[in-house]
Design a protein around this nucleic acid. Structure first.
Lengths: 332, 332
DNA sequence: ATCGTTTGCTCAAACGTTTGATGTGGAAAA
DNA sequence: TTTTCCACATCAAACGTTTGAGCAAACGAT
């Protein structure tokens, strides 16, 4: 089955190619009845304009790229879902690329985007990414760029995320309000900006309540191997701890297991709270009290913002924040 | 920053556009030193061929589409990851589309693929999909189509999945070998071909061991709401049950919670086994014994097969299977 | 010196679409 | 009758690339 072109329609209707083009675009220069006839023939031939030809002419590709560190884990699938939904609505393509948390790969993907005339890029940077030169290059080439979730300190590229510090404070203050004082805070890779923001929120919550924090209560997971073991050991060595905060779902599930292995009961022996996309808390038992950080919501908001940037809106630089809320379930 | 074209290079080198094109493609008609000069200028100008122009000429789009029912759940993220990896290696685009488990949407997405000149489509059909007319239409238009994971009975479109019946039998036989006889089997939506295949495997395992099965031990989840509640009630009503099999991760986590709510200890009071992509079993405690059904592996195998189809290989119709293996952990 | 071949390049058409410029016929205005 | 204007359509160039055909110069063979 061959694909039909404007030329085919032109032949069948006796019009010229440009006449057909305008008829299909409802151009005022074309007589109404001609439009109807062309429309019918187009339907009959199952005509669809060739996107490559259109792109070639218009010089925009209708492609949005989402670059994520990984997708086979928490949060990112939902994020992708949210993005995908909005991109589809706008009639754009979404191409999805993974950096595998490697800066090298991330840079290569950016080059790929340049090559492919991608119009807009939503990127959650890798753990290794410590500068934005490659992103600025992309911007130089005319693409719109928006950082999501995992951000970097800069003023040249807008970013959308939650208020990391505040979300963490909320969680800790909830625990404090329940009478907890010795709260183990488990945080991700120190290199991520997100991690330091959340750690700050953790400390601020104690300050605000005139409480002090022992340094061994703030724990970083810098080694991806044996996360569970690291938590298990730390927890075993700290007798006074009555509550655990985890900054992400990935860490949450590991902490959950470590707690169970120690024979501790949630929430009676120990409370557990996390920042979460709201899925994992319902896999575990009891359900985990968490600060909801909806991936889908972030995705939708980010993609929507990106389209505003694409349509030429100015002054969108800087922070764009998503609200979070406490979901109180059985664990704290 | 303007993007450079062959014309720009032509001007700078004094060659014609076609000369430059051939030089960059290492055509034998061009003198070696000319090629070097052209190469240098191209580098200097940061030249990349315009994909739209290439596609327009070659009439292929270098686009692969993955159509999945959803991605914000188990298995599919891994699947997507596997696919993405292979597609990238081949220098193709991957566009990712979601059917939201709706046939209507799935059909619309197929039309979109046709419109966009997609060369190949990997699709995991929606629960509602009961015929493949839309897929045949896509095939008619010249695209390669491959069903993955969730398949449909047909001989015209190849499909890649695990041996669903065998994987289930493996799980049940493992339980039987441990002395279990009253095994609750919890299965997904009856409309899915996958479900009936797995249910068959369940029954075959008992037959093979000369055991009979009460009909209330085979349970279907046809209603997506309150899955946990449905399982809880069924489990509460069946005293003799000593083991539970779940056909997917989605059901596994719900069964895990129902069991815990009933105050039963895994594996002492009740054993639990599942078919799983191998992630969720390590979130829960104790770790869940499962038949590993790796999403990434399926994705890689499927995408690889698709590229073989694209390169014109024939006789690829019918079954393509992925091996599964038992991973024995703490729950059974 | 003539022919044939090779080397290294250019020309021009084609892919399908869009769009500014241009043309034609007819009706209304002068 | 001539001019003006409008409605409707066509022409042709352009987007950037690829590729078959053609062509001039150089070179070796006769």
């Amino acid at each position: 089955m061959k694909r039909s072109t404007l030329k085919d329609i032109a032949k069948l209707t006796g019009l010229s190619v440009s006449g057909v083009s305008r008829a299909l675009k409802n151009h005022p220069d074309i007589a109404p009845e001609t439009k109807i006839k062309v429309g019918e023939v187009a339907k009959a031939l199952n005509y669809h304009p060739n996107p490559s030809a259109q792109f070639l002419h218009s010089k925009n590709s209708k492609i949005i790229a989402a670059i994520l560190p990984e997708v086979n884990t928490f949060f990112f699938p939902e994020l992708l879902q949210g993005i995908s939904q909005v991109v589809e609505q706008h009639g754009y393509f979404l191409i999805f690329l993974q950096s595998d948390n490697k800066l090298k790969k991330e840079q290569a993907l950016i080059d790929y985007c340049i090559q492919m005339f991608v119009e807009g890029v939503l990127i959650s940077v890798s753990a290794e990414t410590d500068n934005i030169d490659h992103l600025l290059k992309l911007k130089q080439m005319g693409a719109s760029v928006l950082l999501i979730d995992r951000i970097l300190d800069n003023s040249e590229i807008p970013f959308m995320t939650i208020d990391d510090a505040k979300a963490t404070s909320k969680a800790i203050e909830h625990l404090i309000s329940k009478g907890h004082k010795n709260i183990l805070g488990i945080f991700d890779d120190e290199r991520l900006t997100m991690t330091s923001l959340r750690a700050r929120g953790y400390l601020e919550a104690f300050e605000k309540n005139q409480l002090s924090v022992e340094s061994e209560l703030l724990m970083n997971i810098n080694d991806e191997e044996n996360i569970e073991e690291q938590i298990y050991k730390r927890l075993a060595s700290l007798e006074a701890v009555t509550a655990v905060f985890t900054m992400s779902d990935k860490i949450l599930v590991k902490a959950y297991r470590a707690i169970n292995r120690l024979g501790l009961k949630i929430p009676d022996d120990i409370a557990l709270i996390s920042i979460s996309d709201g899925k994992a808390p319902y896999y575990l038992f009891p359900s985990i009290t968490h600060i909801r950080h909806s991936g889908a919501e972030v995705g939708v908001a980010a993609a929507t913002l990106l389209f505003r940037m694409l349509s030429g809106e100015q002054d969108l630089n800087g922070f764009h924040q998503i609200e979070t809320s406490l979901v109180e379930l059985g664990s704290a």
